[in-house]
Each structure stands twice: as C-alpha cells, then as structure tokens.
Write a protein that binds this DNA or RNA. Structure first.
Length: 140
DNA sequence: CCCCTGACGGTCG
DNA sequence: CCGACCGCCAGGG
C-alpha cells in the first residue's frame, strides 16, 4: 500500500465514525488492516488540510486521552471544543490532560458497518461509578 | 547507513 | 490511576 493510499484510507475510515462517537488511532489502523501503524494514522491526520471533510476530532489515543501535540500548540484544545460541540463529555485530568470516556462514546466496530456497540463492555467504567463526577466544575 | 523522532500501543510494578 | 519501559514503522537529518 502506498503512502497516499494509506492517508486516503485513514480519511475514509475516520469519516465512518458516527457523530458524537470517538475511537482510537490504533483502531483506525486496525480497520484499515495495518494494526501496527497507529502512529502513522496520527501523522495522516496531521497532514490533513483544513478543507478536507474529516471528523479528525473523533480520534484519540487508546487510553481515551487527547494527544497534547506538545505545549504551546492549541490542537488539543481545539479538539476538546470540537468534541464538546457535538455533545461528547471531555474530562480534565489533574495534570491538565484531556480525556474522553470510552464507555460513553467509544466506537470500536470490528469492521466498518458492523457496529454492534462493542465498547460498552470492554473498559468497564473508568472510575466514574456512583461517585461524584465533577466534570462540570469551573476550570481555570 | 545510523540515529532520532512522533496526533501510538501494551505490559508491568 | 500513573509512570517507566519496550516495541512498531515511516520520515528526515
């Protein structure tokens, strides 16, 4: 597979992610058929032009965390706003890192089109059980 | 050709 | 939950 084809495959796959749902770089790579190319999926999104109609914000790391892209860059913040804009709850961790809850919005179908809600079982509640989840607290 | 880097992933303590 | 480590693979210096 060519690099251009790979990028195109990434874009096509990302376009399949439903509104308000989130998946990981690794899973995109898996859907394409190159499970060990998670890093390159991120690179493909990085090379993405603004004009492209690709919901890049719906792709985060396998742990649910939004990649920071290094301090000084606003990429992570933009992604957060884009996600919240479509109703996805973004959790702010103690270190300032951002993350989503896969048990809520995760999208991990084995194949595109075979979405059978597999996510709600795998990660068994990231500690948001019963206890207060003050996600709506005044940050900053 | 060697070495470092990166919008990553999985395991282990 | 978190940090330390190691593995992966294509690009770039």
């Amino acid at each position: 597979m060519d690099i251009a084809e790979f990028h195109e495959a990434v874009y096509q796959t990302v376009r399949q992610i439903p509104f308000g749902r989130v998946t990981s770089y690794g899973h995109i790579a898996k859907l394409i058929g190159l499970p060990r190319h998670s890093r390159h999926v991120g690179q493909a999104l990085k090379y993405l032009n603004v004009d492209a109609d690709v919901p890049w914000q719906r792709v985060v790391s396998s742990s649910g965390k939004i990649s920071s892209r290094g301090p000084g860059t606003s990429g992570a913040q933009r992604q957060r706003e884009a996600l919240e804009g479509e109703g996805v709850e973004v959790r702010v961790m103690r270190d300032g890192g951002l993350a989503v809850n896969f048990s809520e919005c995760g999208w991990f179908p084995e194949r595109v089109g075979a979405e059978e809600e597999v996510a709600t079982e795998t990660v068994g509640t990231t500690g948001v059980e019963g206890e207060n989840q003050d996600a709506g607290q005044p940050q900053e």
